[in-house]
Structures are given as C-alpha cells and as structure tokens.
Design a protein around this nucleic acid. Structure first.
Lengths: 106, 106
DNA sequence: ACATATTTTCCGGTATACCGAACTTAGTTC
DNA sequence: GAACTAAGTTCGGTATACCGGAAAATATGT
C-alpha cells in the first residue's frame, strides 16, 4: 500500500463499498490508475482527478494531502458536509436550516 | 488569462505582492510553469503543486478548484448555516449528515 | 534617449500521469 | 473441480505536466 495517499484512499474506498472499477467509473478515472494511486510508491495525481475521487468518497481533496497530525477527522467531515449542503437546491437547504435551528435550541 | 484557475491565481498573486519568480521560488515551481497556469487555456496541475502554491498565497487548494456557482447572497446564508452546524455536538452533526445524505439521493 | 534591472512570455525537451486492454487471482455455484 | 464472475494487477503507449533557459517586454534611473 506504500504511500500515505494510497492507504487513505484504499481504506476510504472500501469503507464506502466501492470497488476499483465502480469508483473509477464514478470518478471518471481508469481503474488501473486508481490502483496505481493506491499501490505505487510515489505518485502525483492532478488536483482535478483527486478532487473528483474525493468528491465521490464524500471528502475534500486536501483530506488526502494533509498529513494528519492533530485531529482533522472531524474537520473533514464538516467540510464534506458543507460541500454536500451547497450542492442542494434552495428549498432543501431551507429545510436543513430549520432543522439546525431546532437543534440549536435544545 | 484564459481560464478560471488562471485568473484567480494571477489576481491573488498580485494582491499578495508576488512576482512570478518570487512565488515560483517560494512554492518550488518553475516560473515558466506558473505562467502557464495563469495564461494557458487549459491546464491540469498536480494536487501537490497546486497545494504548495495555494499555501504560499494563504488559501487552501480547494479555493482554486470550486466553481463559484452560488450567488453571493446565498453564500452568506450558507456560511451562516455552516457556522451554526459547526457549533453543534457530534451526535447532532451526525444526524444532520444523515438527513443530507437522504436529500442527496433524491 | 540610453543602459540595465526586473518581470513576463516563449519554446524544446524529458519525465511521468493516465489510459485501454490483457492477464491473474479469489470467490461462488453447479 | 470445472466453469463463471467479479475483483485486482500488470504493461506498453500517448499525451501532457513541468522544467531550464533564452527572448521579449516593461519599469526605473540618469
């Protein structure tokens, strides 16, 4: 599994129930290249492709870039959530906002 | 100036008082390539290089990647929502995340 | 107007990101 | 235990990311 990016990617992919091929298709990458990302010693994917992959896995691109020293886990969950939220239509956003307000009052 | 990434980069670089050469040196990139990023029609920098550049400019790599689709007024609402979300406890965040996932599937 | 210092643009070459398709391995069913 | 299937692995080739250095262009001083 070789490198930092590789092991993170492999772990996340399996957690999300993706196979190399299914994730490759979803993120518009070849599965052979996906495999290289997970297994080769050194690699240097383009920002666009990495972002596409990260997107499918529900995280942000820098999740794969940061060396996790402190506890970025929650931060990345938050960022991913926010990105998902932004992709919604306005009436759905509105519903989420109301739910949030309800939470804040308890 | 051609592309989205390019104009953002050029603007930010000048705001921060960098010349092509000084930023290139700071971010460990060749100045010629920096120029290409700013001026060529199409380009596809690696995540690492883009992150290094973004770092020197005091932004995150995603800054160059997101297409700013949402309108500025909506953006304000979004940011406020995100701030509220982050102030929640992890259980409540988790619930919101599940609701978001449900929305995304429709 | 001329020198010269600074920044930007151009270009040839090399390394490698990324691909398609073939091959291997591991499960599953009969 | 052969025959299918789905997942993972390997590999040759092509496009392009990225570089060094040279040439324009632009700014600054005299």
């Amino acid at each position: 599994m070789a490198n930092q990016l590789g092991s993170k990617l492999n772990k996340l992919r399996k957690e999300k129930g993706f196979t190399l091929e299914s994730l490759a298709k979803a993120a518009n990458v070849s599965k052979s290249y996906l495999w290289e990302l997970e297994n080769r010693e050194v690699n240097n994917p383009s920002a666009q492709r990495l972002a596409a992959i990260a997107d499918q896995l529900g995280v942000t691109a820098d999740f794969f870039l940061d060396d996790d020293t402190s506890h970025p886990e929650e931060k990345h969950l938050d960022d991913a959530f926010f990105r998902g939220y932004k992709s919604l239509g306005s009436q759905e956003k509105e519903q989420l906002r109301k739910i949030l307000d309800a939470f804040k009052k308890s």
